[in-house]
Amino acid sequence: MARSVLIVEDQDSMALVLEHLVRREGCEPGVARDCATALEAIAAAAPDLVLIDADIEERSGLDLCQRLRADPGLVGLRVLVISARCARLDVERAFALGADAFLPKPFAISDLGATLRALLEPDAPPQAPEARHG
């Protein structure tokens, strides 16, 4: 069965790009434009991975990440954060708030593919080895 990935992204072109790349990895993409929609979609469809752009809605992507981690029902959920803010502090904060991997924008599409694969492997460690730190 195809793994499902929820993309939380409000920028149309980036959502298009992410959708394309997720599909190319053989996963089933879904797109949420904001945090509220994302929470509903997660509750309804229970995706395997959430790909959050931290820069959405006044940078509330990390808040979403934190809320997902606070939910005991979502222990197995993988979280990949992408962001244009990629100073050491921003990366550390993303991991502290529960990201399994972090990719700075702009990214190479091969990096995204590799990170997705690593995170979706059946026995993947909580933190993907390819995750780049700023």
Partner: peptide, 18 residues
Amino acid sequence: MIDTLTPPLAALAAMGEI
């Protein structure tokens, strides 16, 4: 400048690659 240029440039870079 970084904040406003990064999103379109990140998308453009990815789309170009794709």
